[in-house]
């Protein structure tokens, strides 16, 4: 009889925001197409460590399991990624899971990404419409521009790029790659363009685009394949022009 194939996880845990991190090892039966979230669900059903100790189930965040909500980002074998589409068969065992410590940890793999949503306020991440009421026929848009906006609009605020970026973290006030790309998306919108100068000026402030050190990790980490470095370079170009305007227009 063939031995039951198993999968081993080494999970970095922490009981509270101020708790001390520790690791636990779990072993569970392999099955085809098993992903990390499904494995965590199995552990949740029967939270017993490899050495037979019954422990509290591992805490993590997930919603859609389809790689669109961005909730289940964690560090898997050293790299930030979505747990729901991290297939066990493609990972080296034992599989190490850790919270993304760029962000404050709440418990186990659960992190607090409030800062990402606050960043969207910093860049005025919206189109400043008059209201939800009917105004008139909306402006037409170049389908190619719309396609670029569509690409950037896939950003699910998961935080992979921030976790991978060496310049984002408690040691720095860098806003990170994703909100900068978002700012570009609003800037190319026919209505969003009206606030372009405000967004660029916000990005020229402390912790803005100037804190980018061109490590290029963001574009490799992005689970949505958004061309982050390209948009960062574009915003760099735009802020230079904006800086000239700031000097010579007044």
């Amino acid at each position: 009889m063939a031995l039951q194939k198993t999968v081993t996880f080494i999970i970095e845990r922490q009981d509270s925001p101020t708790g001390k991190p520790y690791t636990q090892e779990f072993e569970l039966p392999w099955r085809p197409a098993l992903n990390v979230v499904a494995a965590l669900m199995e552990i949740q059903k029967n939270p017993v460590t490899k050495d037979g100790k019954r422990v509290a189930p591992v805490v993590w965040e997930c919603n859609c399991l389809e790689k669109v909500c961005g909730a289940c980002m964690m560090v898997i074998n050293g790299k930030a990624q979505q747990a729901c589409c991290a297939l066990v068969d493609k990972l080296k065992q034992p599989i190490h899971l850790a919270p993304a410590r760029t962000f404050p940890v709440i418990r186990d793999l659960l992190i607090d990404r409030t800062v990402m949503f606050e960043n969207l306020k910093r860049i005025q991440g919206w189109i400043n419409v008059d209201g939800t009421w009917e105004v008139r026929i909306p402006p037409r848009q170049n389908p190619n521009t719309a396609a670029t906006a569509y690409e950037i609009s896939h950003c699910m605020t998961c935080g992979c790029c921030l976790e991978a970026c060496p310049n984002v973290g408690p040691q720095s006030d860098f806003i990170g790659p994703s909100p900068i790309a978002q700012a570009y998306m609003y800037n190319i919108n026919p209505l969003g363009e009206y606030d372009k100068a405000n967004r660029l000026n916000a990005l020229m402030a402390k912790g803005g685009i100037t804190s980018c050190g061109n490590s290029g990790n963001c574009v490799k980490a992005c689970p949505k394949g958004i061309k982050l470095t390209t948009y960062l370079a574009q915003i760099n170009r735009d802020v230079n022009i904006q800086a000239l305007k700031n000097i010579f227009d007044h």
């Binding site: 037409r140 848009q141 719309a146 998306m185 919108n189 969003g192």
Partner: peptide, 20 residues
């Protein structure tokens, strides 16, 4: 009207060659 509202809010709807 809702679609037009979303369009104004910047939803990157897929567009025809003409931009509608």
């Amino acid at each position: 009207a809702l679609v037009r509202m979303f369009d104004r809010m910047g939803v990157p709807f897929t567009r025809s060659a003409e931009g509608v």
